[in-house]
């Protein structure tokens, strides 16, 4: 009986009476459907549909594949617009999987973006779990409420994003919004009714977002970057561990307000202006604070001084300031850091 040791360091050699598989035989066709579907999950859908021509075993395999990858730049069609639209419509019409695991839609031709909503509706009707939409658009994109999506990434260049006013996303755990514009001067209220299970939330490069209130019990990570119209930020969450705010409060407005309640915050990044009306609860678990302040006005030095009080328990503080010399001259801005 052959014995073999497979350890971290070595596999001892064993002599096998190897029954050489016939080199010409087809092994892949004997894999279970789920394994072939997993191979499909690394291909764009046009390559997947093509496999229907391989042999009888493959005839309908593509139609039950749980992943759909559509990209009007990567999928060659007779022309990027009507040919691509025909492809996607045909794919949806013939696709038989009752549930879609991942639906990836990237549309770089603005004319295709008019279809984005109805195509996403198709995915939602199939209880999609992971939804990725990346669209260059000249029309608004209305994202409906849904109860199946766990992970959602929306990137919309051009058109407005309209999020559902009520309902929300009951199963959503991971939400990333980028390069989008919210219609009107919007206030986004992401609370435990809207996204009760949300754990990670990021907003990047957005305009039209005036107010953001985030209050989700399971939220661990929140990242806000270049939300240029932001004026109100109210964050509250017992499980928040990382919070990052960058380049959002760039204009000095008297109405600006920031309120943070995150008792278990561990990593805090603030690369932004310190606004007059800034308040936070105690950061008892703070380990790392990364702060870059730009000090333009005399009052800013007062604000900075108050701001640093919140960071007093940080074990590791990275601090960069512009106009640092002003502060040194006028005030002793830095408090004592205990740790």
């Amino acid at each position: 009986m052959d014995r073999m040791f497979a350890t971290k360091s070595k596999v001892s050699k064993v002599k096998f009476c190897r029954s050489e598989p016939l080199e010409e035989s087809d092994r892949i066709s004997s894999l279970p459907d789920a394994a072939i579907h997993n191979i499909f999950s690394f291909l764009f859908s046009n390559d997947v549909v093509k496999t229907s021509m391989l042999a009888k075993r493959w005839r309908y395999l593509w139609a039950s594949a749980p992943d759909i990858f559509l990209d009007d730049e990567a999928i060659p069609t007779s022309d990027r617009e009507s040919g691509f639209v025909r492809f996607v419509d045909g794919l949806h019409r013939h696709h038989k999987a009752p549930e879609i695991k991942r639906y990836y839609l990237r549309l770089q031709q603005p004319n295709n973006s008019t279809f984005a909503e109805s195509w996403v509706q198709f995915a939602l009707a199939r209880c999609v779990k992971r939804l990725f939409v990346n669209v260059v658009s000249h029309v608004p994109f209305r994202m409906p409420s849904c109860n199946s999506v766990r992970r959602m990434k929306l990137k919309l260049r051009g058109g407005d994003l309209v999020l559902p006013a009520a309902g929300g996303f009951t199963m959503l755990k991971y939400l990333a919004l980028s390069e989008f514009r919210l219609a009107g001067n919007s206030v986004l209220d992401v609370n435990s009714d809207y996204c009760p299970l949300l754990r990670s939330f990021s907003l990047k490069n957005c305009s039209g977002l005036i107010g953001l209130r985030v209050d989700c019990p399971d939220l661990e990570d929140l990242c806000i970057r270049q939300c240029l119209d932001l004026d109100h930020l109210i964050v509250s969450g017992a499980n928040i561990q990382t919070l990052s705010v960058e380049k959002s409060f760039t204009d000095r407005r008297p109405t600006s307000l920031v309120k943070i309640t995150a008792p278990n915050l561990q990593t805090f990044t603030w690369l932004d202006r310190i606004i007059d009306n800034f308040s936070a609860g105690e950061f008892r678990s703070l380990r790392v604070a990364h702060v870059y302040l730009e000090i333009y006005y005399y009052e800013d030095t007062n604000n900075a001084q108050r701001f640093f009080q919140y960071l007093a328990s940080a074990e590791n503080l990275q601090l960069q300031m512009r106009c640092f010399w002003v502060c040194l001259k006028s005030y002793s801005v830095l408090p004592c850091f205990s740790s």
Binding site: M1, D2, R3, M4, F5, A6, T7, K8, V14, F16
Partner: peptide, 12 residues
Amino acid sequence: DGDEFVVDVDDI
């Protein structure tokens, strides 16, 4: 085919 392979529990 009945051949036995002893493997480290952590590794496997």
